[in-house]
Amino acid sequence: MPSELFVFDAYGTLFDVHSAVARQRAAVGPNADRISDLWRRKQLEYTWTRTMMGAYRDFRQLTAEALDFAAASFGGIDTETRANLLAAYETLAAYADVKPCLDALRARSARLAILSNGTPGMLNAALAAARLDGQFHAVLSVDDLAAFKTVPAVYELVTERFGVRPEQVCFLSSNRWDIAGAKKFGFRPIWVNRSNQPDEYTDLKPIRTVRSLADVPGLDV
């Protein structure tokens, strides 16, 4: 059935997680790209590990801890640069394809939402900085559960909030593991494969794979 409820992951899908380091590249130094990559990997690792342990810390705290590990792995950064990076993460740049996609979906009266590991404060700050506040009918955070994706109860936040069945939800994420979790829950996921990664979790396939959100409004989903 065609969906008119589109739910977006935030980090990596709407917001460029590497834009924080990009803004501080000179201060971070020659290992900037490797620090950025490791920062993201450890951030996600901490969400999965702490969820399995039942030892929740919110996404803002884990983002800081992941940065500290990544920076220390390449010789460290000074306190001012650390503070600037964490501040920049609160106002990550939105990808250029985000606003046109949202506008096109809203033009056909689709309902739009975010489902994210981010804290409400982080999400509100990022949306305001990108001038996307007011674009979504709901901004849902895992903070309500004290557990991160891919716990099924996280995806259930959407069905409870909108009073829909899982198969009525079109879920969009750039993270293949998130697509797998959403598919297992029963959503109809679209993988926004921005960096042309190989497929994985092949038993939990997306209904579509696109390279950009610009492709989404034209899909029959």
Rank of each mutant, 00 (worst) to 15 (best):
P2L: 09
E4S: 13
L5H: 07
L5E: 09
D9C: 06
A10K: 00
Y11L: 08
L14A: 01
V17W: 02
V17N: 03
H18L: 14
H18T: 13
S19H: 01
V21E: 06
A26T: 15
A27Q: 10
A27R: 07
G29Y: 06
G29R: 05
G29E: 14
N31Y: 10
A32M: 10
R34N: 15
W39P: 00
W39F: 04
R40Q: 10
K42S: 03
E45L: 13
W48Y: 11
T49G: 06
R50G: 01
T51P: 08
M52V: 14
M53I: 11
M53V: 12
R57M: 14
D58V: 02
D58T: 02
F59M: 00
R60E: 14
R60S: 15
A64C: 12
E65R: 10
E65Q: 13
D68K: 07
D68F: 07
D68S: 10
A70C: 13
A72Y: 09
G76P: 08
G76C: 12
G76I: 13
I77F: 02
D78W: 08
E80D: 15
E80C: 08
T81L: 08
A83Q: 15
N84C: 14
N84L: 12
L85I: 13
A87S: 11
A87E: 15
A87H: 12
Y89H: 07
E90Q: 13
A93Q: 11
A94D: 01
A94N: 03
Y95A: 05
D97A: 14
A104V: 12
R106Y: 03
R106W: 04
A107N: 14
A107F: 12
A107K: 15
S109K: 15
A110T: 05
R111C: 07
L112D: 09
L112T: 09
A113H: 01
S116E: 01
G118R: 00
T119L: 04
L123G: 00
A125V: 05
A126K: 01
L127D: 00
L127Q: 01
R131C: 08
D133S: 13
G134W: 04
G134L: 04
Q135H: 08
H137Y: 05
A138M: 05
A138T: 04
L145G: 01
V151I: 11
P152C: 05
V154S: 08
T159G: 03
G163E: 02
V164E: 05
V164P: 07
E167P: 04
C170S: 10
F171Y: 05
S173I: 03
S174Y: 00
S174N: 03
N175K: 08
R176G: 11
R176V: 15
W177I: 08
A180H: 10
K183T: 09
K184M: 09
K184E: 07
G186M: 02
F187Q: 01
F187P: 00
R188C: 09
I190V: 15
I190F: 04
R194Y: 04
R194L: 09
S195C: 12
N196I: 08
Q197P: 07
Y201G: 07
T202C: 11
K205A: 14
I207C: 08
I207W: 02
S212G: 05
L213P: 03
A214H: 15
V216Q: 03
L219D: 11
